[in-house]
Design a protein around this nucleic acid. Structure first.
Lengths: 228, 228
DNA sequence: TCTATCATAATTGTTCACAATTTTTGGATT
DNA sequence: AATCCAAAAATTGTGAACAATTATGATAGA
């Protein structure tokens, strides 16, 4: 059951980024990580290389690894790529989704509503991302799924860097509208709504706003349970 | 000018795959590569990890790295992803392309014609792939460019595995048609033609045909010039 | 001749020590 | 105080030795 230290590091860091706990620019020191996850530095090194491949970590030679700091141009490119990929995903979803898939999406939507009602911002963000990833899974194209996983991660970084804080509440209702259209099997409507949804998210990004400060590493990745 | 051994290995292997010299299933032994590129095994290891991240190499624990062998389902997913991504790229191309870009594409097209006329199949394949990559560059979205780079690589693997050998000649004229539409700035036509083009390539793949044999490693990657 | 078993060889995986580079620290000087 | 410089510390990069696993091939028995 327990995975390799390398996978553990990758997933913990990705989760922390998706949850916007690890902010852009945070240094990911090899020693720190090897102590936090109580493993060898070699394994930390491999994990960081993997994360670099996902474009969520930048590697500066002789200076270490940092959570990537996407520029405004990067952000726009990521959003455009999302529109291209999620549009195709949604067409597949309309075609392939069965009642079980609808139920899965409905359940996620309900949780989103709940998290928002409870004011649990971190959970709401996580569930919102999850909604898109479930869509991708239902679309049944692993290539597109994997690209979207990376792109949503990079979106998290962008929102953490430039996002205005009071947004993201509107998003729930847009998810609901998309899901309605999916159940109606109304392809045109789904495409229209997912595109609008992604453009709304992008519009909520304020590149004029100053990048925000970052926290300390150890407090953001833990607590780590070491399997014995 | 001379790059790190790691980059060298990655690029040589990618080129060899794109040119269909390295076929699916070929073993990429660590020692062989370290001798061919006269470098440390550690660097070979990192290069193979990178290639694994690109999905062009499969890594079997304790058994080594092999050029990936995409299944029929993989192939279909790759082609669908290409349609999604290249469609968006082409829209950007219509919008952004300037005379210099047109010239670049025309030049590539002419070389393609020439290679086909001369019966130089390897060069024709390389230039055909290059046409799509130039389109991506002109589209001015590095995120989409990078995805397409990976997808064209995987396409090469698929064509090498399942492709019928007499195809790919028709492709040149389709490229010409696409470029014409781009210069006319006829977005609808460009989209229609690039989609048709990609579907033609996919249609030329024959999954019933038996996977083809693979060659020896050292003869396919060399000759390697070692910078002093 | 075919199969099974075991020793040997080859290959991959891991660890650790050392080298190279960067960052920090603590004066010394202006 | 502020700046500069050098020594020390910390961090990253590299390579080689060792361990673990898998492939190979020879031998014996059916």
């Amino acid at each position: 059951m327990s995975q390799s230290p390398e996978q553990q590091i990758v997933e913990h860091v990705l989760d922390a980024i998706a949850d916007q706990k690890l902010r852009a620019g945070t240094k990911l020191g090899e020693q720190s990580l090897s102590e936090i996850f109580s493993c060898n530095r070699t394994q930390v090194r491999r994990a960081l290389a993997t994360l670099t491949g996902y474009h969520v970590v930048e590697h500066l030679p002789n200076r270490g690894a940092y959570v990537a700091t996407p520029s405004e141009a990067d952000a726009r490119h990521v959003f455009e790529a999302r529109r291209a990929i999620e549009m195709t995903i949604c067409k597949n979803v309309v075609q392939f989704a069965n009642p079980a898939d609808h139920a899965r999406l409905r359940a996620n939507l309900a949780q989103e509503h709940e998290a928002n009602a409870a004011g649990n911002r971190a959970l709401a963000i996580r569930l919102s991302r999850q909604f898109h990833l479930i869509l991708a899974e239902v679309g049944r194209n692993p290539v597109l799924s994997q690209y979207l996983e990376e792109l949503t991660m990079r979106t998290s970084l962008v929102l953490g860097l430039y996002g205005s804080d009071q947004r993201s509440l509107c998003a729930v209702d847009e998810h609901a509208g998309i899901l309605d259209a999916i159940e109606r099997r109304d392809e045109a409507a789904v495409c229209r709504e997912i595109e609008a949804h992604l453009r709304h998210i992008e519009a909520a990004v304020d590149f004029a706003g100053a990048p925000k400060p970052r926290g300390a590493l150890s407090s953001l990745l833990g607590p780590i349970v070491i399997p014995t």
